[in-house]
């Protein structure tokens, strides 16, 4: 038996799959976490690009990124369990693979923001914030990646996944 089959057929996966409540509740937490991660990262991207300049960049950024990381933890925790419970479906899903690729891009986006906002010797962006005009295209790209992930996530309910 392959590893995918072992996980899919484990008692744990079966428990999630067969319960009337567990999977739907995981989806609820997944969406709440999604709003925290994508919302937080998108708002910091927008701020770096120059919108809302009345709010101090580093203070706002640290606040929003803390929320985003908590959201990511909620997403990963529920996402891994949901994927495991229907692993034979998700493991062969092209939509899922593309979604995971875009998630890596979003993580890169989040790490770049985090590194500008916090560091051992203080926040690099407290001393020299990025030029908003130059940051604009990166911010737009970051937001496009987040929207793509949400779209692909929803698409999984229809193609190569599970509602």
């Amino acid at each position: 038996m392959s590893l995918v089959e072992v996980i899919h057929n484990s008692a744990y996966a079966a428990h999630i799959r067969e319960s009337q409540y567990i999977y739907p509740l995981m989806q609820c937490v997944h969406i709440t976490g999604l709003a925290m991660f994508a919302g937080g990262v998108a708002l910091v991207n927008v701020r770096v690009a120059g919108l809302g300049s009345a709010v101090p960049l580093v203070d706002l950024g640290r606040h929003a990124m803390r929320v985003a990381w908590i959201g990511l933890a909620m997403i990963v925790l529920t996402g891994v369990n949901m994927a495991a419970s229907f692993l034979e479906v998700f493991a062969v899903s092209t939509v899922m693979q593309v979604k995971l690729g875009f998630i890596l891009l979003a993580l890169a986006n989040a790490v770049i923001l985090q590194r500008g906002l916090a560091g051992a010797g203080g926040a690099p962006w407290a001393i020299s914030p990025p030029d908003p005009a130059a940051a604009r295209k990166w911010a737009a790209l970051g937001i496009a990646v987040l929207l793509t992930i949400i779209t692909l996530g929803k698409l999984l309910a229809y193609i190569g996944g599970k509602d």
Binding site: I31, T32, L34, A35, M36, A38, G39, G40, A42, L43, H63, A64, V67, L146, L147, I150
Partner: peptide, 12 residues
């Protein structure tokens, strides 16, 4: 998309 913007901003 709307939930992400609304909930993300309200939470912050």
């Amino acid at each position: 998309f709307g939930i992400t913007l609304l909930f993300g901003s309200i939470l912050l």
